[in-house]
Write a protein that binds this DNA or RNA. Structure first.
Length: 226
DNA sequence: TGTTGATCATGT
DNA sequence: ACATGATCAACA
């Protein structure tokens, strides 16, 4: 798929996917469907990037650089509740001098997001097989003043702890809307950080994730009729 | 090793 | 039932 030339074209493409199953979309794109996501956790995101015309996914840029839009799939149940937290970006543990909310990576990443809900559960909460899950109504979102304030507060709290050498004291419960959790191949992975005395040490890489109630609120504000 | 894409699966 | 901590794959 070629790159969409404007926001409207991207929105039309993604709206045309609403109601389709992942099996239908993958089949049209000649992409094989895994039986489940156990060994393909990012498969849905990669599929959507492909059919919407995003470039390779391994770049430190928005998915649609010319449009400044980040694509995020959001697994939800049939009642519109997100089933997982949403990964945003890796948390820098070094080089934080001079970084503030206005110039931080997380703010840039969340500046404009195309959310694509994927319905993963039946009304009686049964898991739907991957190929039969349906794409919901996607929408474009930018943080409201209130949402940005919440994000900025949490980002500042977590970043302050990192700067103070307290990264290993941070748990998923910190933050109202944002949390810091492991983001690594396994628990043995290491990246450099600084301790409270300013000495370098190795620790588990972490990432920023949006908590479920926050993405749920975003979704609820953007409910619309198909 | 770090970036992208995330969900798995166990403990509470 | 649910969130936290752990983990999977591809690519640069």
């Amino acid at each position: 798929m070629n790159i969409p030339t404007c926001e409207q074209e991207l929105l039309e493409r993604v709206q045309n996917l609403a109601g389709l199953t992942l099996g239908e979309v993958a089949c049209d794109a000649n992409i094989e469907i895994p039986l489940d996501l156990k060994r393909n956790k990012g498969w849905i995101g990669l599929l959507l990037e492909h059919v919407l015309g995003a470039g390779a996914s391994s770049r430190p840029e928005p998915d649609f650089p010319s449009l400044g839009i980040e694509l995020k799939t959001l697994p939800i149940n049939s009642q519109g509740k997100p089933l997982e937290t949403t990964f945003v970006c890796v948390a820098p543990l070094t080089g934080l001098v001079g970084i503030n909310w206005q110039n931080c990576w997380l703010k840039q990443k969340l500046s404009t997001v195309l959310w694509v809900p994927i319905i993963c559960d039946t009304p009686d909460k049964k898991n739907i097989p991957l190929a039969e899950r349906r794409i919901g109504s996607a929408f474009l979102w930018s943080p409201s003043v209130e949402e940005e304030q919440l994000l900025a507060l949490d980002w500042q709290e977590l970043t302050d702890m990192i700067v103070l050498g307290e990264v290993e004291k941070i748990h998923g419960k910190h933050g109202q809307v944002l949390q810091l959790r492991p983001k690594a191949a396994n628990a043995q992975a290491k990246t450099q950080a600084f301790d409270k005395n300013g000495k370098p040490f190795l620790t588990l890489p972490r990432g920023f994730y949006l908590k479920i109630p926050f993405t749920q609120a975003i979704l609820n504000k953007n409910l619309r009729i198909n």
